[in-house]
């Protein structure tokens, strides 16, 4: 029993690591370096999703939640305003609800130089 369960757990742990993101494209693109500070970030999903949380983190600074009040319902394209930012590395982390009822999450990063 324990061997069977252990085998299944290890196998599932390994396969889950390559589950792919429903995010098709972003602006700025993932791992892109841009010279101009963006006033908004664009997230283009493969299907309709309701974003519930989006946060932005610069380096070791505390993360900032981005305002999603302007959005309601499910959509596949989001353009989310961001507060004025300076140069540095940025990590955007998002969570949302897929149209099939699955909670979804993902992240992407970019650099402003």
């Amino acid at each position: 029993m324990k061997h069977i369960m252990f085998t299944a757990m290890v196998s599932l742990w390994a396969t889950s690591a390559i589950a792919h993101s429903p995010l098709e494209a972003t602006v700025p693109a993932n791992e892109a370096t841009v010279s101009k500070t963006p006033s908004e970030i664009v997230m283009d999903f493969k299907g309709a999703i309701r974003l519930t949380r989006v946060s932005m983190t610069q380096g070791n600074q505390p993360s900032v939640s981005l305002d999603l009040d302007a959005f309601s319902g499910f959509a596949s394209d989001y353009a989310i305003p961001v507060p004025p930012i300076g140069m540095g590395n940025y990590l955007i982390e998002w969570r949302g609800l897929g149209a099939d009822g699955h909670p979804l999450k993902g992240s992407f990063s970019f650099t402003v130089k």
Binding site: I4, A8, S11, L12, A14, T15, S16, A17, I18, A19, H20
Partner: peptide
């Protein structure tokens, strides 16, 4: 080639 497919193979084997 996908996590979903591989998990399905595991399920079928069991």
């Amino acid at each position: 080639g996908t996590g979903y497919g591989q998990a399905l193979i595991i399920k079928v084997l069991f």
